[in-house]
Each structure stands twice: as C-alpha cells, then as structure tokens.
C-alpha cells in the first residue's frame, strides 16, 4: 500500500511523515475491536513493485521514529493467505493490488477490518475504507459505504476534516 506515499511508482520519496498519515487514521477509529493488534501489509509476491512497496512500508512502520503504538505489530501478508490471518486491526494495501480490491473489500466487511490504501480511487470506489495521499497536499478519503458495511466508526472530529464518499 501507500505506493504514492512510499513507492517509486508516483515518483515521491518515502518518508516517515508519509507513513504517519496512514497510522494516524487508526487513532480515530472509535470502535476498534478489542484484542486486535496486527497491521497486515498485504501484497502480491508475484509482482515485484508490490513486494518492494510492502517492504518499504514494513521498514517505515518498524522505524522507532514513527512511534508506533507498542501494541501494534506490522507484518507482511501474501494476499492469497489473507484469510488465514487473524487478529488484524488494519490492512494496508501495497501498490499494484487493484485486481484484488474486490476481495479486500469483502475481507474488510467480513472481518470488520479497516482497509487502508494510498490509491485514492480505492476509497472513492467503495473498495477500501480509507485512502490517503500526501502530495501535493495531504488528502484523506473515507468510503462511508465500506466503513458502514465493515461496522467501523470514526470520531466526528475526524469525519469533519476528511472527504467522505
């Protein structure tokens, strides 16, 4: 995920600040299921760009400068093994995963998991719960339809400041 934030596809350099945008979104979920601590970085190992992007995300999340909450544990997940994974609080979608958007959306609804992407069209089309972009200006897009179907609620202050579709 966060290809535009992190990966070379969009031509922007990966920064910790970019990754923070995605992490901050998690803070504004008001009904996060108790006991879930996993951050799944979902990618397709058969696509080189996707794998590289996923590794960049993992490296950034593991950086002490990010001050990731102690309970949250990032891990790389092959998109084909997603159903075998439990205890996920959020799924971060790596680059070049458009062909899996439908199955990711269905996973999010079924497991009540936040699906986060750097592809703004993913939330606009109702597949991802939230999409973020950092350049040229920070943008946060929430799919109300996906959030509602996944039973995910955000704080009112957060909703006032983002774009909802």
């Amino acid at each position: 995920m966060l290809a535009c934030l992190l990966g070379p596809v969009c031509g922007g350099a990966t920064t910790l600040k970019d990754v923070k945008i995605g992490i901050h979104v998690i803070d504004f979920v008001t009904n996060a299921p108790a006991g879930r601590a996993g951050i799944g970085i979902v990618y397709d190992p058969r696509i080189k760009e996707s794998a590289e992007d996923a590794q960049l995300i993992l490296d950034s999340l593991s950086s002490p400068a990010l001050h990731l909450a102690p309970g949250l544990k990032p891990q790389l997940i092959d998109v084909r093994d997603l159903d075998d994974t439990a205890n996920l609080r959020v799924v971060m979608v790596a680059d070049h995963m458009k062909s899996f958007y439908d199955s990711l959306a269905e996973f999010g609804r079924r497991t009540r998991t936040l699906v986060l992407s750097s592809d703004l069209d993913c939330a606009r089309s109702g597949k991802c719960t939230v999409s973020v972009a950092s350049a040229p200006r920070v943008e946060v897009i929430v799919s109300s339809q996906q959030a509602q179907a996944s039973g995910i609620q955000f704080s009112e202050a957060f909703r006032m400041m983002v774009t909802e579709y």
């Binding site: 600040k17 945008i21 979104v25 920070v138 946060v140 202050a157 006032m160 400041m161």
Partner: peptide, 20 residues
Amino acid sequence: KLEGMFDEPVTSSATGKPER
C-alpha cells in the same frame, strides 16, 4: 494527532467545527 495527520495547523475557531 490531527496536526500529525494533516501536516498543518488545525483549528475550530473559524466555524466552530474542526478544520485544517
């Protein structure tokens, strides 16, 4: 948290609602 996410000051002084 809001400033950390949006990378700019936030305010509610302009309308009473939180805004960038």
